[in-house]
Design a protein around this nucleic acid. Sequence first.
DNA 1: TCATCTTAGTTCAGGAGCGAAAACAAGCGG
DNA 2: CCGCTTGTTTTCGCTCCTGAACTAAGATGA
Lengths: 394, 394
Amino acid sequence: MARPERRTVRDIRRGNRAVLLHTLYFSGPTSRNDLTARTGLSAATVSTMTAGLLGENIVVEAGQVESDGGRPRVLLRVNPEYGFAVGVDMAENHVRVGLFDLEMTERAKVDYVLRPARHDPELVARHILAGVEVVLSDAGVPTEQVLGIGVGVPGIVEPGPDGVIHAKPFGWDGVPLGALLRRGTSLPLYVDNGAKTLGQAELWFGSGRGSSEAVIVLLGVGVGATIVADGTTFRGVSNSAGEWGHTKIVAGGRPCRCGGRGCLEAYVGIEAILDRAGVGSQGDWEEDLDRLLASESPVIQETVTYLGVGLANLVNLVNPEKIVIGGWVGARLGERLLPEIRRATAANSLAEPYAATSIVLGRLGPDAVALGAATLVLEEFLNTPQVARITAAG
Amino acid sequence: MARPERRTVRDIRRGNRAVLLHTLYFSGPTSRNDLTARTGLSAATVSTMTAGLLGENIVVEAGQVESDGGRPRVLLRVNPEYGFAVGVDMAENHVRVGLFDLEMTERAKVDYVLRPARHDPELVARHILAGVEVVLSDAGVPTEQVLGIGVGVPGIVEPGPDGVIHAKPFGWDGVPLGALLRRGTSLPLYVDNGAKTLGQAELWFGSGRGSSEAVIVLLGVGVGATIVADGTTFRGVSNSAGEWGHTKIVAGGRPCRCGGRGCLEAYVGIEAILDRAGVGSQGDWEEDLDRLLASESPVIQETVTYLGVGLANLVNLVNPEKIVIGGWVGARLGERLLPEIRRATAANSLAEPYAATSIVLGRLGPDAVALGAATLVLEEFLNTPQVARITAAG
DNA sequence: TCATCTTAGTTCAGGAGCGAAAACAAGCGG
DNA sequence: CCGCTTGTTTTCGCTCCTGAACTAAGATGA
C-alpha cells in the first residue's frame, strides 16, 4: 500500500525549486518565460525563484534571444561551474577517477591499474582518495567546490552509510568501502553498483534519455542490469535489484562462477562465450571476442539466442519502454548483431510487451560507469539544491 | 531521470488529507491525538481536517477510550458505509461480482458460470452489468453510493480508458471490455489483470500487508505475478509488467500454450504439472492435483525445483522484502511443501537478496481477485478523497 | 463539593507559498 | 518621442500549516 507522506508548505518551495532546476538543466538555456510554460509555475514564482538561484550563483544568465517585436528574453542556465562531482569506476582490473563539472564535462581523470589478486580494500581506498586529490589539483578545483564523490563498484552494495560491498569474484565479502573512504574525506559519498551507475549514465545522458520505464543492461565480464521505474533506479529492499546476470535461463544448466547453474552470465558473460567457443582465455578477451565474431562459429548464434531469452524475460517481467544494451561485450555484439538480438528477443517475449519495447545500443563509451557515478552526485544536487551553500566563485 | 512535478499550496491539503485517511483506514479506530503522532501533522491541522472529514461523513466517531487521568480520547474511523465498491472476478469459467463496503466486508455477491468457449465479450459484459444490479439491490445500496467498479480479468489490459484486453487462451484479442461496460453504467471503472488485483488484495489485506517492496505470485491455471515497488503495483510502460509465467526458465524447453518454449508456466502451471505427471486432464484439476500430491511422484519434487528457479529469478531481479504465494495451486503446493520451495529458491538465488526475502503463503481465499478489484476503487478513494461528494446518508 | 491536575482537542495569530493582475522594462516601428 | 508588443517584477489576496494560548472533560483528593 502506498503510504503518502505529510507535507508542509516549505516542501513546496523545495519541490518547485527542484522542478525549476531540472527543467533548466535538461532544457539547456531557457528564458523565464519558457520556464513558466514548461514547469506550469506562475511567472511570479519563476521570477522570484530564479532571482534566488541567480543570487546563489547556481544559475547564470546565458545571453538573450530577440522576441517578436517585444522585450528580448534573457536566457538562463545552470552554472556548470557552481560545483563539481567526482566519479569513480572501480572495476576488476582498474580504478578510474574522473572530475566532472555540472554539465558532466570531464575536467580531469586518472587511472590506476589493479594487479589481479591485489584487491586489498585499503589499497583500493587509497587509490581512490589519491585519485581525488590528483584530479582536483589537475583541474585546479578546490575541495569546497566539490559536491560529492560517486563510486561505482562490482557486486552488491548494501544500503546504509558504510557502503558495504559483497563481490564474490573479487574476494570482497562485506567490505565497508564507504567507511574506509570516509576516513580520508569529508565529502558526501555515494557508493553504488557499477551496472547501476552505468545505467544512470545511459538514462540521463545516453540512449535512455527521456525514458521513465527502461532497463539498461551491462554485458561485460559480469552481466547486470539497471531497472528504471518511474524515472528512478529501482533498488528493491536491499539495493540489489537488477541482478539479471544470475537469473536462470536454463534450469540445471552450465555452472556459473556464482556457484549456481544455468545463470544467464554462464552463457553470455565474456568468459562463458569464449569458453563455449573453446577459445583459450589466456590472451586478450577483446581480441578473442573480435576473432570469434569474425568467424562463422555457431557459438555466436547461440549467444544471441541466449541473450534473446534473457532480454525477453526482462520484456515480460518489466515491460520497459526501452532496453539499452551497454558494456563492452554488449557494444561488440550489438554493433553487428542487433537485428538478430531483436529477433531472438521477440521470439521469446509476449507480443504486447515486446511491441512496447525498443531495443537500442548504449551510446556512452567505457567511461560510462564513472560518469554515472558522478551523476549520483548530480541527482542529489538537482533534487535538493542547497540554499545556503558557500561558493568560492561569485 | 526523475521529473518532479510542480506543486501548489492546495496539493498540500489534498496530500495531507490522503495521509490522514490512509492512517485512519489502516490503523483502525484512532484518536486525533494518535493521528498527530502517526502522521507527523500538527494537532491543529489534524483537528481542522478531521472536522471537515466528519462533516462530510467520510469519517465517524467510534467511541472513546479513557486516558490516564485526563480527558478521554475520542476514537475516529473511516465510515465503512460512506461508499461501496464493486469487485468483479472474471475468470476462465466464471464471472463473480461482489459488493464491498469501505472496510472491504462483502455485502453481497453473485456468480455466473461461463460455459467453455462462450466468452462472447457482449455476454460477459452483460453478466457483469447484471451482477452489479443484483448485488446492489440485494444489499439495498443505491447506485449513488457506489464509488466505482473494479474488474479483474485474465490476460493483458492495455492502459487507457477503454480497458482493452488481450487474452490469448480466451480468444480475446483487443476486446474493449471497459468501453462495453461503460455503455451500461456511468460509474468509474477500473479494469486490471486478475493477477494484479489478487496481488493488490494480498498486499493490502493479506500476507503482503505492510510491505512496500514485494512480489505476489499467482499459481493457478495461469501463472502471473504482481511486482510491488515503493508500495504500489509496478505496471511498466503498457501495464503488462509482471508476466512472470512466460519468462523462460529452460531455453528451448517445453512448449507453452502461449506459443513459446520453456516458459515457467509450461512447468508449474496446473496443466503442465498434470501433463508432466501423465495424469489425464479429463477429470477435476483440483482432485488430480491432490492425488498427485498424495502420491510419491518425483514430478512433485521437479515442480518444486522449477518453481524455486522461477522464484529465485524474482529474488535476484526484484530483490523483494517478501514473496507471497497465491492462487489455488500455490495454496496446495505451499501447504505441504513450503520449506522445500524455500530451499529450492535459496539454491538458485544470490545469498544477499535471498536473505532479504521472506517467502510466505497468501492468506486470502479464492475471492481475492474480486476483493482486489474492489480495492482498486478503494485505493482511488483513499488517495483523492472527494471534497464535494453528495452523500445520501448523513 | 469543589479546586486542582492531567490529558485531549480547538482557536487564533503569524509566517510561508503560490497565483492573478497590475506595474514596470525593454525593444520596435513609425 | 509615442504607442505597441512582449518579457519580467511587484503587489496583493488567498490558502496552508504550525506554535501557543485556550477550552473541554474527566480523575483525584481534601
